[in-house]
Simulated scan of single mutants.
Amino acid sequence: MTATQIPSENADAFGGPPPEEEVRPRRPRRRVRAAAIVVALVAAGGAAGIAATGTFDAKTKDDAAIASAATATSLAKVTQGTLSARTQQNGTLGYVGDHPVINNASGTVTKLPAVGEAIDQGKALYWVSGKPVVLLKGSVPLYRDLSRGMEGADVQQLNAALVALGYATKDELDPTSDYFSRATRRAVLELQDAVGLKETGQLTTAEAVFLPVDALRVTKVDGMVGGAAGSGGVLLRGSSTKRQVTVALNASQQASVKAGDKVLITLPNGKSTEGVVSAVGKVATKTDQSMTVEVLIEPLDAKATGELDQAPVQVAIVSETVNDVLSVPVDSLLARAGGGYAVEVVGEDGKHTLVPVTTGLFDNSAGTVQVTGEGLRAGQNVVVPGS
């Protein structure tokens, strides 16, 4: 950094300081952290502070040496483009849901899935006394045997599942109907034949389990092959195969995040992928140090997240975005004594100029801030603290 020369009416014709005046080195700049914690600073000694505008050069090698000794600096570019306000949070990458599989078949457990295995709708979850128990999609448990002539929400989800699995077309069986019709019976016969169940045309509680997933990813196996099935007991647990990131957000920040906000997820391997906030909790939970609310995030590219479960990730939540604006590193800002900020612009000729700026959106994650200032343009160099 160059040394700032103190203007004087007695300066010689060459612009240098008179012999009796001392060249004062600029004091080390102070970093400005973020919009929420910016405070008024006095950047230079004396009552003058930093002038509204000014130009200064290192006129001699000695001046340059003084400036270099005062503080180490480097240069950064003024950039133009899209800027987002982001908050950095810790998150956990996993799968959506936790579903216990309750068995209603009597007998001996003869086959169980392995942890991590994914079972699609229409396939057997496990076997009791050699007979498969099939997974079907639905939120209402199979609490009764279903047969022709019955009505209800459980019948409606059976009709929807049969159509989804291709055992009937929409023209043959209305997936929104809650009536167990002749077409329902025919489709149940097709299902039973396909999975190896006795073809009766009715669906019993021992033959299927309804869960609200298209496929169940097994997370825990409680039963044991050769053991008693135990009607009403939990044989295994699972999640959906849908990926999700969970963030425990400080309750004080709840209002700054909403469903639909874009996020950037940084994975354990260092790669990043985009996501979107799907839900923000309304009930706070007390942790050891604070009150938090749960924020759920859906990755936009599930494959990019891999298959890790309960993996720690970093999440940058985007709460606001501005387009086609100028931005600079936050630590390039210099607080002016009279209020406001300036940046130190370095011209192509090496001349240093203080340009007053008005700040806008802060990106706490990237360490940049939106600025406007007279004469400021993209591509200019600004001074920032050196490493």
Rank of each mutant, 00 (worst) to 15 (best):
169 T>Q: 04
251 A>L: 08
259 A>I: 12
136 L>W: 06
158 L>P: 15
277 V>L: 05
335 A>P: 12
325 V>M: 00
378 A>M: 12
305 T>S: 00
128 V>T: 03
57 D>L: 10
275 G>D: 13
110 T>A: 09
294 E>V: 11
270 G>R: 07
227 G>P: 02
339 G>T: 07
359 T>R: 08
48 A>E: 05
176 T>C: 04
100 P>M: 03
252 S>M: 05
116 G>N: 08
177 S>A: 14
1 M>H: 08
223 G>M: 06
210 F>Q: 02
340 G>N: 03
66 I>W: 01
362 F>D: 14
170 K>A: 09
31 R>A: 06
134 V>P: 11
111 K>T: 15
196 G>W: 01
145 D>H: 00
8 S>W: 11
37 I>G: 10
330 V>D: 12
123 K>D: 15
108 T>I: 13
261 D>C: 10
1 M>P: 15
124 A>D: 12
243 R>W: 05
300 L>N: 14
145 D>Q: 02
53 T>C: 09
16 G>Q: 12
275 G>Q: 02
147 S>N: 14
333 L>R: 01
205 T>L: 02
147 S>R: 12
370 Q>Y: 03
86 R>P: 13
292 T>V: 15
184 T>R: 05
303 K>D: 14
247 V>Y: 07
71 T>W: 04
382 V>M: 00
120 D>Q: 03
351 K>Y: 05
109 V>G: 13
197 L>E: 03
313 V>H: 04
376 L>Y: 14
145 D>C: 04
282 K>P: 14
49 G>S: 15
24 R>H: 12
104 N>F: 14
338 G>N: 04
366 A>E: 12
115 V>H: 07
126 Y>L: 09
381 N>S: 14
334 L>C: 07
386 G>Y: 02
7 P>S: 11
251 A>Y: 10
7 P>C: 12
84 S>R: 07
353 T>S: 12
257 V>C: 10
103 N>V: 13
77 K>Q: 08
18 P>W: 01
213 V>A: 05
296 L>T: 14
227 G>F: 00
131 K>V: 14
253 Q>G: 15
332 S>P: 14
253 Q>A: 15
171 D>E: 11
210 F>W: 03
351 K>G: 11
225 V>A: 06
126 Y>R: 06
154 D>M: 08
6 I>G: 11
283 V>L: 13
295 V>Q: 03
372 T>D: 10
273 T>A: 01
231 S>M: 06
76 A>H: 07
119 I>W: 00
311 A>Y: 00
368 T>V: 09
16 G>M: 03
21 E>Q: 11
32 V>R: 02
207 E>P: 12
291 M>S: 05
387 S>T: 13
28 P>T: 08
310 Q>C: 09
54 G>V: 02
376 L>S: 09
98 D>R: 10
211 L>K: 01
297 I>Q: 07
328 V>P: 12
373 G>Y: 00
116 G>M: 02
38 V>G: 04
266 T>D: 08
205 T>Y: 06
33 R>C: 09
79 T>W: 12
191 L>F: 13
345 V>E: 00
160 A>C: 04
273 T>I: 05
79 T>N: 08
160 A>T: 11
